[in-house]
Structure formats: C-alpha cells, structure tokens
Amino acid sequence: MVHYYDDADLPRFGEIGKDAPELWQKFNAYYGAVFEDGALSEREKALIALAVSHAVQCPYCIDAYTQGCLEKGSNLEQMTEAVHVAAAIKGGAALVHGVQMRKKAEGISM
C-alpha cells in the first residue's frame, strides 16, 4: 500500500536543498536561529512548535517535536496542554467565523 506520509522521509528532509541550495541554507540558518534560547527558552519554543505541529497537522513535525519536547525536559502534562492550546485556537477560529455566518444570514433575511 502506498502512503503519502512515510516516517523514513523525515531524515531525507535535506534532499529538498538539492535544486535550490542557497534557499535551503538560508532556511536552515533561520530555522536554527529561531529555536535558540532567546526571550523564550528552547523548551518553551519546542512546546510552541509542538502546538503548531498539531494545528498544521504535520506528522513529521509531530514526530520531531514530541521527541524535541521530551529532550528539552518537558513532560506529557505540559505537552498535552500545548496540544489543547492548538485545539482551542483551531476550534475557536472555526467558531468565531460563525459571526460571519450570522451577519450574512441577517443580511439576507427579513
């Protein structure tokens, strides 16, 4: 059976640089800098990345940042709360569009 997603593809990520090496290098440098300790700690940034991974529903990112969060010292309580933050924002984003629905309905209704 063919799968669109394959965990063996994650270590092959670097292959995307083959035909555009300068852009890949710039992306890598930027990516690395983003995750360094700064105003936010590496651990906090990994938790944000984990939440975003769920919001964008990227299985590669979920794989990488589950390991990443554990290796930064986070625990399952914190990681589960991070996923709930993603779920709340995703759910809230859907729900708040209900205002648009209501405005449209009001506009065309008697």
Partner: peptide
C-alpha cells in the same frame, strides 16, 4: 535520566525546573 529512548535536556535548564 531520560524515561525513554531520547536524549537528556541541557543540564542547567532541567535543574532549574
């Protein structure tokens, strides 16, 4: 020490936790 198949975090950060 890690409670699974992963590496430990940086010592100073987890010590503070």
């Amino acid at each position: 020490n890690p409670t699974g198949a992963f590496l430990p975090p940086k010592q100073a950060g987890i010590e503070a936790d």
